[in-house]
């Protein structure tokens, strides 16, 4: 695949310092986003999915801080810029946020103000990133609402967010994310708060928009079904690390990392037989502040190799290649090589 790389994240580390100690929310995360393709980021709560998204947009809540790594936007082009080096408040970063990179929230109301009409807010977003007249901005807002499949956009433009249903609100949220004509869209659990039929509508909308605009989509979710439906490549995260990276078919047909395998077996399936039990992963995700030594997954891993896993940290997955951060995978690769 020769798709253009839109964003290259390398060795990203984010820490939250407090009096109780340092919490490593991200511990060396690397991945690429490509134009026209979808990266699915999957993991349980506390794995660092959302922090990754917030880091790219430089909106990590205090006291969170990027301590290492690079986030190169449009690498190898004249517009290349390392987001990790920018001042979060700078004009350039504001141009990236909502401009070159759009964000779709889980709950669109967090991005929308209750005091202004949706039209007003979309126009505002349009005007921030384009030098056009108000009338043109209004036309653009109507156009955006039409693009995201909102019926009668000419009248809906004067509606307030609370007058809309959850599904319509998320469509408005998507329109907001598209207002700056972004090359990259980050969708953080965009359908988690929605009903299944609405979720299906929003997912197919996202796919259509991505194809039309050749957007690089980063889709963050905990739902393996959504990943299977949407992603081209998948990054499985656990305790602030990417533990497996692979094309979506491979992740589902031959998962490499024991965590991915366990996760897939633990997902309830609509194809289940009656009273079918699920295989479980013992325990729960540890607090990121109490990260286990060695491989962070070893206390819950059913396939661990003893001292190797408890003492040493496995190599991270090299970006752009399929693989898993696991000693067992390393060993079997060494055998076949």
């Amino acid at each position: 695949m020769a798709d253009r790389t839109s964003l290259a994240v390398r060795d990203l580390a984010v820490e939250f310092r407090s009096e109780q100690g340092v919490v490593r929310a991200l511990d060396g995360v690397s991945f690429d986003l490509h134009a026209g393709r979808t990266l699915g980021v999957v993991g349980e709560s506390g794995c660092g999915k959302s922090v990754t998204a917030r880091s790219i947009l430089r909106i990590v809540d205090r006291p969170g801080r990027i301590t290492a790594g690079r986030m190169i936007l449009d690498p190898g082009t004249p517009r290349e810029v390392d987001l990790a080096q920018l001042d979060p408040e700078s004009k350039e970063m504001r141009g990236v946020r909502g401009g070159r990179v759009g964000l779709i929230f889980q709950e669109p109301m967090t991005a929308l103000s209750v005091h202004y009409t949706v039209g007003n807010q979309i126009m505002e977003a349009v005007l921030q990133h384009a030098d056009i007249s108000k009338a043109e901005a209004q036309n653009r807002a109507i156009e955006l609402l039409r693009e995201v499949g909102i019926p009668r956009p000419e009248t809906r433009i004067s509606a307030y967010p609370f007058e809309l249903s959850g599904g319509l609100r998320q469509r408005v949220g998507i329109a907001m994310a598209l207002a700056g004509d972004p090359e990259i869209v980050i969708a953080d659990e965009p359908t988690t708060a929605l009903d299944v039929t609405t979720q299906a509508q929003i997912l197919s909308l996202l796919r259509r928009l991505q194809e039309e605009k050749n957007i690089a989509l980063m889709l963050i979710t905990h739902d393996m079904g959504v990943i299977a439906e949407m992603a081209d490549e998948v990054a499985v995260m656990y305790l602030g690390r990417v533990v497996e990276f692979a094309p979506v078919e491979e992740v589902f047909s031959e998962p490499r990392h024991p965590y991915t395998r366990a996760l897939l077996r633990a997902v309830p399936s609509i194809l289940a037989t009656p009273r079918q039990r699920l295989s479980t992963i013992g325990g729960a995700v540890p607090h990121p502040g109490a990260r286990p030594s060695g491989c962070p997954f070893h206390p819950r891993c059913s396939e661990q190799l003893g001292a190797l896993c408890t003492e040493q940290s496995p190599r991270p997955v090299p970006p752009g290649r399929s693989g898993a951060a696991c000693f067992k995978v390393d060993q079997s690769e060494a055998v076949t090589a």
Partner: peptide, 14 residues
Amino acid sequence: MSIAIDTATPPSAP
């Protein structure tokens, strides 16, 4: 939303 740190989770293995 803020980082999902579940402060109620005790350290897994004392």
